[in-house]
Computed example of a mutant assay.
Amino acid sequence: MSTANWAIDIDRDDIARAELVADPPAPLAPGQLCARIDLYAMTANNITYAVFGKPSGLFGNDQGYWDFFADREAPGRLPVWGFATVTESAADGIAAGDRFYGYYPMASEAVLTAGNIGPGGFTDVTPRRTTLPPIYNQYQRIEALPDYRAADHDYWPVFRPLFLTGWLIADQFEDEGDYGAAQILIASASSKTAIGLGFSLARRPGPRPETIGLTSRANVVNLAAQHVYDRVIAYEDIMTLSPAAPAALVDMAGNGAVTRVVHSHFGNNLKASIIVGKSHWDADAGQAALPGPERQGFFAPGRSQKRIADWGGAAFGQKIAAAWLAFMDVAPRLARIDRRSGGAAALAAYREMLSGTADPGAGIIVAP
């Protein structure tokens, strides 16, 4: 098949079944635009999108991540974060050559329906997307991003959405008085969301809980050398932590075995248990009754909307920008960029991430 215009179709019921398909362009309707996807990231976060592709209650309605870029009767199109350049436009205020950062399908091109067009960007108003979280429907002109630096370009799709999630989790901990915890255990600590959380907690002024990164034994030395967490230990060493010290767990991967060990070890001294992602999509999620607190999910778009309501959009943006630029000063030492090109490489990158064999020290970006 020609790979000039391609997409990757994923079985909604079995995310391990994915194939590269031809995706020929179609005529644009009024208000639509076609954008060539220049660059996107493939991370464990995308596997979470696939796991929750079907309606799961995350959005408070009967929609899931598959609804952003595919009709219900069609195979799933995985959302990814990246940059794209408009090649054709039937939307007033958007011209060929305009560049946007935002949410795209795992494909070489995307057709979007533009509304609320302004100097800063636009909102996709495709009918099936209008009831989905607004943060996913906003497309920002690169030139209008206040904290964009050309030197950071490749790190934006790799880290930006994940760092924002980590920063929002850290904000929630501060807002909740750290749930009374003296130590915060962060599982899957080599993940990029976890690193964003550890970095954000470390920047807090004044007293704060100790941060303990939990990872596989093979990753301990390298992760500790990054100095993101106060301590890094292997999963097998969780039992060496003092069960008398109030703790909180942030689980980035949905691994039930780790959750059970932490809950059993700390019991009622575990003050909060927060699950963020499901990158270990085929692992036991640990839903059986556990000692200690009930597990709670964290949903970044909801937290963003709360803080925008609390602070106002401008203040929220300023806080994120300051944190992001500080993080970008250290990001190159935290992950190297692993660039892939073309549809076959995109499919291979998805399968690699799905299998859990991707190098946590790399940020995979795909140039379609």
Rank of each mutant, 00 (worst) to 15 (best):
A74L: 11
A41T: 07
G57V: 05
A44L: 10
N45T: 13
A70D: 06
G76N: 08
W66Q: 10
I47K: 10
P24A: 09
A22R: 11
G53L: 06
S56C: 13
D23R: 13
A22Q: 09
P79Y: 03
D67N: 11
A35M: 09
P75E: 08
R72C: 06
Y65M: 08
R36A: 15
M42G: 03
G76V: 02
R72T: 12
Q63H: 14
Y65W: 12
K54N: 15
A35Q: 14
W66E: 02
Q63G: 04
D67V: 06
G82N: 08
R72P: 09
D67R: 09
G31E: 00
Q32A: 09
E73R: 14
L39E: 14
L39K: 15
F68S: 01
G31W: 00
F83A: 07
P27A: 05
D71M: 04
L78R: 04
A74T: 08
T48Y: 12
T48S: 15
T43I: 07
L58V: 01
A44S: 15
L28G: 02
N46L: 13
N46C: 12
A50V: 07
D71K: 07
F52P: 11
L39P: 00
L39S: 12
T43M: 14
P24H: 04
T85M: 10
W66Y: 14
R36H: 15
Y49I: 12
F59H: 08
M42R: 04
G57N: 00
P55H: 08
M42N: 09
S56E: 05
M42H: 01
A29E: 12
A22D: 13
Y49L: 08
F59E: 03
I37L: 13
I37K: 11
D23V: 04
N61R: 06
F68E: 00
P79A: 10
F52A: 13
A50P: 11
I47N: 12
L33T: 07
L78A: 04
L28E: 04
P79D: 10
D62T: 10
Y49G: 09
Y49R: 13
A50E: 12
R36P: 03
R36T: 14
Y65L: 01
A70P: 03
V80D: 04
L33D: 02
A29D: 04
S56N: 15
A44M: 02
A26Y: 00
G57E: 10
Y49N: 08
M42P: 04
L78S: 07
F68K: 02
R77N: 08
L28D: 00
K54E: 14
D23Q: 13
F69E: 06
K54T: 13
G57P: 10
A84L: 09
A41Q: 03
P25T: 09
G82I: 03
V21Q: 05
P27M: 02
Q63L: 13
G82H: 02
F69C: 08
V21S: 09
A41N: 10
R72D: 15
I47C: 13
D71T: 07
G53T: 11
A84R: 07
D62I: 04
N45Y: 05
G64D: 11
T43Q: 14
M42L: 14
A29T: 04
W66T: 01
Q63P: 04
A22Y: 01
L33A: 02
T87N: 03
P75Y: 04
D23E: 14
C34M: 15
R77M: 05
N46T: 11
Q63V: 01
G82Y: 06
F52K: 07
D62H: 11
G53C: 07
A70V: 03
N61Q: 01
A29N: 03
L58T: 00
D23H: 15
L58A: 06
